[in-house]
């Protein structure tokens, strides 16, 4: 077992207190909030992140639980655990893709501890970054965590001026596809941001969250049965593994035609990749395999997997096409079964 370095742990009882503590300590010393700790504590052991003050959010009741407001929005407290989200009847009925994504995260043990908020704020991942301190030191570190080396490069793309660490959250692409909003609270006040604006395509500065802000709530817009959202996760084992690809697809159907469509890819870049523009070519017509194929053929070009997660990136890119096709067809209630089994049919 690797050991945690010493740090001060603070356990506020209210959101306001938490925000004050974050502002106050954050001014002087590296300070972070922790929810389930299933991401932060392993990172601290590997010394990828080394806050000297850690503010625990689990003792703040107002950050927990799932409710609805008068306008039909669903409000999820950021420290609601993934296990709670996965089995919540209301989410299961109204936003099954989100419940499914929460259920698809890691293992049962981690889901009872890990939170939805933590999942959305999950640090970006990379084979060169997710290593122990001594391992990273032996390659002179990397630009995401340069330590003593100001000239540290990106090991995945050595000539690159930016970090390519991967957004690996299962729930993030679904939140973007559902057009969720996030309520961010700080000592200075609060603001609401669109999920799509919350994630930034940069492996280091991967969130638009300011360091003094706490993600308090996830707000889901009202939905109805004309919408169907699907999340497909590609991983090697039936449990445990981070997504090597996640595809969230949403399709709103009228009587026969598609009225609206959204498409978001996860784990193919430093932020969820919103390919909704492509999916919108389905609007106005009855969904067909050909139309879905055409979107898939376009969408996977936008996926730029690099050689920094499990398995070969060329294959992962091909899989983006397969999964977009499957997810969109499923969301559009289209039966692909007649042609599966034709080898590589989706790839031709």
């Amino acid at each position: 077992m690797m050991r945690l370095s010493p740090f001060t742990y603070l356990a506020p009882r209210t959101l306001a207190e938490a925000a004050d503590l974050l502002a106050e300590h954050g001014r002087q010393t590296p300070t972070m909030v922790v929810a389930g700790g299933t991401d932060l504590f392993p990172n601290m052991k590997r010394r990828q992140q080394e806050p000297k003050v850690v503010i625990g959010l689990r003792g703040v009741p107002e950050l927990r639980g799932i409710s609805t407001d008068r306008d039909g929005w669903t409000l999820i407290g950021a420290t609601t655990t993934l296990a709670q989200a996965a089995r919540d009847p209301h989410l299961g009925q109204q936003y099954p893709a989100l419940a499914h994504a929460a259920h698809a995260v890691s293992t049962p043990h981690l889901r009872t501890t890990g939170t939805l908020g933590g999942n959305l704020c999950l640090d970006t991942r990379c084979n060169y970054y997710d290593q122990s301190y001594h391992w990273r030191k032996s390659v002179d570190f990397c630009m995401k965590r340069p330590e003593s080396n100001p000239a540290a490069i990106c090991w995945v793309a050595p000539g690159s001026p930016r970090c390519w660490a991967v957004s690996s959250s299962d729930c993030a692409p679904v939140a973007v596809a559902l057009r969720a909003r996030f309520r961010l609270v700080s000592a200075a006040g609060e603001r609401i941001v669109e999920a799509g604006d919350f994630f930034r395509d940069d492996g280091i500065e991967y969130l638009a969250r300011r360091p003094d802000e706490i993600l308090a709530q996830i707000l889901l817009p009202p939905t109805d049965r004309s919408w169907r959202t699907v999340y497909l996760k590609l991983r090697r084992r039936g449990s445990f593994d981070f997504p090597i690809l996640g595809v969230a697809a949403s399709v709103k159907r009228g009587n026969s035609t598609v009225e609206d469509a959204r498409l978001v890819l996860g784990a193919v870049g430093s932020a969820p990749v919103d390919a909704t523009e492509l999916a919108q070519s389905l609007i106005g017509a009855e969904p067909t395999t050909e139309a879905v194929d055409a979107v898939a053929a376009q969408a996977y070009r936008g996926a730029r997997p690099l050689d920094n997660t499990d398995l070969n990136y060329a294959w992962r890119k091909k899989m983006a096409r397969v999964y977009v096709r499957r997810a969109l067809a499923d969301a559009a209630r289209l039966d692909l079964h007649h042609d599966s089994g034709q080898v590589g049919a989706a790839l031709l």
Partner: peptide, 17 residues
């Protein structure tokens, strides 16, 4: 250097598999 020195990345099969 070993690239996968943990049981997350060194993949033993799980009960689900």
């Amino acid at each position: 250097r070993l690239m996968n020195p943990s049981l997350l990345d060194y993949r033993k099969l799980t009960a689900a598999d």
